[in-house]
Computed example of a mutant assay.
Amino acid sequence: MKTRNNNSALVSFEELKCFIRNILVQAGLPGDDADKVATLMARADLQGSDGHGVIRLPQYVKRIRAGGINTKPDIKVVRERAAMAVVDGDNAMGHLAVSYAAELAIEKARQTGVAWVGTRRSNHAGPASLYAGMPIKHGMIGVYFAVGNANHLPPWGGAEMLLSTNPIAIGVPAGKEAPIVLDMATTVAAYGKVKAKAKRGEMMPEGWMIDRQGRPLLDPNRADEGFLLPIGGHKGYGLALMVGILAGRLHGAAMGRDVVDFNKDHTTPTNTGQAILAIDLAAFGDPALFAAEIDSLIQDIRNSEKLPGTERIWLPGEQSHARRLEYQRSGIPISGGVVRELSILADELKVEPLRGVEDTR
């Protein structure tokens, strides 16, 4: 793949998906499972969530090769009532376990109006917005919680990292407008963004991390020397704690000292927990009227009075939607550091490398 001085290249969604699938098949995943995981990973990059897309592929392969991922899992429901279920992922790729949970939540919500499905014995599954967005296609609101796959956050005022980035995502259908999709870590930045900065050879902005003396930590390659900061100070710490309880402890998944750092440990099952809540709009009223009202709200916010120097007021998820449209036209940018790592992986597994085109932007 050719690159310029900006050390990035452009690939199409289909090429990226095919490459990821081929790598996963060579690593040991069955074809259908590899296809589902590859589709979700490529969608992450397509929407600009580059900390959770193909950048994670070498790490996933390491875990598969080391036995840390079950390539032939028996994903199943282990607890169930009309409007809830707990899914045992059997240490599968997280994308498979969470997709299973989301599909089940949608199916149940059609009958009960609201349904909660949680996972245990799952794994890292990519950006939260992928799963909060799944119910939208079925006329539902989606709410997603997850326990992060490594602890990067101490309790407020503490120095021992007992919590993770523990993300929240909420997807709300609209009509003519793009859906509103909030996807946020309970830390100022997700750890995937730290990894992406390191791959691109960039420094972190002040306010993402501090070292153990409380000083700003700007070099992503020194991330192990400090920890991420919570959003809103003690309020973000409280959110991380509660999300961990809802997504982890509630389903018998890991939290606190039980969380396995999958960045360093490739063999120990992570027992990751996630939860998806599906809310069927039809249970609350006319979905078309709701969508029209959301459109009106979006337009009111977008067209409201702006502060000096502000060009546009964005809605949550709007920039990801814009990137998705742009990348569908021009290709998905992959940084030079990731390109090099993927080329090495392709060579090891005897897979055709990414070709792409030169990024001249």
Rank of each mutant, 00 (worst) to 15 (best):
D50G: 02
M41S: 11
S49T: 11
I64F: 02
A38P: 06
G51C: 04
A38W: 02
G51N: 11
D35Q: 11
A42Y: 11
Y60I: 09
V61Q: 07
M41D: 01
V54L: 03
L40H: 12
I64W: 02
M41Y: 04
Q47L: 04
L57S: 06
R63V: 01
D50F: 01
A66F: 07
K62G: 06
M41F: 10
V37M: 05
A44T: 09
H52D: 12
K62A: 00
M41L: 14
A66G: 06
A42W: 07
R56N: 11
Q59R: 15
Q47F: 14
R43V: 12
K36S: 05
R65H: 08
Y60R: 13
P58R: 00
G48H: 04
S49L: 07
Q47S: 15
A38N: 07
V37A: 13
G53M: 07
A38V: 10
D50W: 06
V61Y: 08
A66I: 09
V54N: 02
A44N: 09
L57H: 10
R65P: 08
V54A: 13
A42L: 09
V54I: 03
T39H: 15
T39A: 13
K36F: 06
G48A: 06
P58S: 08
I64P: 00
D50T: 12
A44L: 01
L46M: 14
R56Y: 13
L46R: 06
R43F: 13
L40N: 08
H52M: 08
H52L: 11
A44P: 00
D45L: 07
R65A: 13
K62M: 01
P58T: 07
K36H: 09
K36P: 00
V54T: 10
A42I: 13
G48C: 09
V61M: 11
R65W: 03
D45I: 05
A44R: 01
Y60V: 13
Y60T: 09
D35T: 05
G48N: 11
Y60H: 15
Q59L: 15
D50A: 11
D50L: 04
Q59I: 10
D35S: 13
I64V: 09
L57F: 00
L57W: 01
R63F: 00
D45P: 12
Q59C: 11
V61S: 04
I55K: 05
L57A: 12
Q47V: 04
D45V: 01
P58Y: 00
S49D: 13
R43G: 02
K36W: 04
A66R: 11
Q47K: 15
Q59Y: 14
R63W: 00
S49P: 12
G48Y: 07
R56K: 14
D35E: 14
K62T: 00
V61P: 05
Y60E: 15
L57Q: 06
Q47C: 09
R63E: 03
L40S: 08
K36A: 02
M41T: 15
A44C: 14
I55L: 15
D50M: 08
A38R: 02
G51K: 08
V61K: 03
D50Y: 08
G53H: 05
D35R: 07
A66T: 03
L40V: 04
V37G: 03
K62H: 06
A42P: 12
T39L: 12
D50K: 07
A42S: 15
T39C: 14
V54W: 02
R65Y: 01
M41E: 03
Q59M: 15
